[in-house]
Simulated scan of single mutants.
Amino acid sequence: MKKKQWQGWGPCEQAEQHYLVQPRVLAGGGDVRHVSEFLRASGWRDKSKTGGPLLMESTDRSVRVAYDLSVAPGGWTIHSRADGANSEWSAHLGQQTPVEIVAGLTDALTRPRSAHAPNVWALLQEQNWHTRFEDQNYTATSPDQSAWMQYRQDADGSAMWWTGAKDKQGNGWTAYFTPNTPMHLVQAFSAELAGPDPVMRPRGRVPHSAQIRTWSVSVKPSQLSAWRQARITAARAATWARNSARSTRPRTTARHYTPAGGARTRH
């Protein structure tokens, strides 16, 4: 009896039904690997325990990204401990926050900070979000009123970033960032929050909402794999480039001068 040789997907692979969903803010959570595989490819450590929640840790151990549904209300937690130059900060995002929007923040954690001053509101205004200032709160709302970004200050002086999306039935998600969350990370998040492009979800994973629009598309498993691999490859290439730049950076620390003959004077 001859053994059958697996030919891969090849020309016989079957396309699967997926949907493009718009607006992206109401597309549902999606596949958490969109976030975790990028972080892993960027050199982050996977500290998850078997059967437990997702837990990723940065290479310098200063930042942790977790996804946990075993606690209420469940979802994403990003926490950065304080160091000599930066204060402690954290972000909490509901489990229905689309992974593409979460990745706006988590991908930015792997990149050097831009020299340009971040501006959260400019990116939203470019996508025709309406901005207004009321009391101590500055708010931007999407054109269809389904999503918002707000910097709010209470009477006692406490402040935070508050954002989210809701349809008319009340389905959606909320998230908040402590006020000292680095602005370039909030900007990266808001860029994906306001992104005009639809996101893809498999059949059976599209939320029931009268406020979303969907387009059916047929996608081969090899195509999905290729798209996922392209994102991973980009993360690895960027990490390699940064590490190479560090290793080739000229030494700036002055070396101790030793007189001819190698003798040093003792005091």
Rank of each mutant, 00 (worst) to 15 (best):
R24I: 07
K166M: 10
A27N: 01
T214H: 04
A27D: 01
D154T: 11
A108G: 07
F177Y: 07
G8W: 06
S87H: 10
I78A: 06
A260C: 08
L105Y: 02
R203S: 14
K3A: 14
A159R: 14
H256K: 12
L185I: 09
G261C: 05
T265V: 15
P112L: 07
H208M: 09
R61V: 03
W148I: 09
R228L: 00
V65G: 01
Q169N: 13
A245D: 12
P196C: 12
T174I: 10
H184E: 13
R266Y: 09
V32A: 04
P198G: 06
S190Q: 05
Q145D: 12
P23E: 03
G10H: 06
R205K: 14
C12E: 08
Q5G: 02
I232W: 00
G262C: 07
G75V: 06
K4W: 02
A155L: 15
G195F: 09
P259Y: 04
A91P: 05
A210T: 10
E100Y: 01
R201M: 08
Q187C: 09
V32Q: 01
A245C: 07
A245I: 03
V102E: 05
G170V: 07
A122V: 09
R249A: 15
A260L: 11
Q187A: 15
W240L: 13
T233N: 14
V32D: 00
D135Q: 14
L124M: 14
L55G: 05
R228E: 08
L69F: 04
A117Q: 14
S62I: 04
G195A: 14
L185H: 11
R228W: 02
H18N: 11
V63E: 00
D83M: 06
I101Q: 09
T258I: 15
H267V: 14
S80Q: 14
T252A: 12
R213H: 10
D167E: 00
E37I: 04
L20F: 02
H130W: 03
E37Q: 15
A263T: 13
G28W: 00
H116C: 02
G51D: 05
W44S: 06
L69I: 13
A237S: 14
A155G: 07
S218C: 01
S225C: 00
V120R: 03
R111H: 08
R231W: 02
S218K: 08
M56F: 00
Q136E: 08
E37W: 13
C12D: 07
A260F: 08
V71C: 07
P179M: 04
G261I: 04
A235G: 03
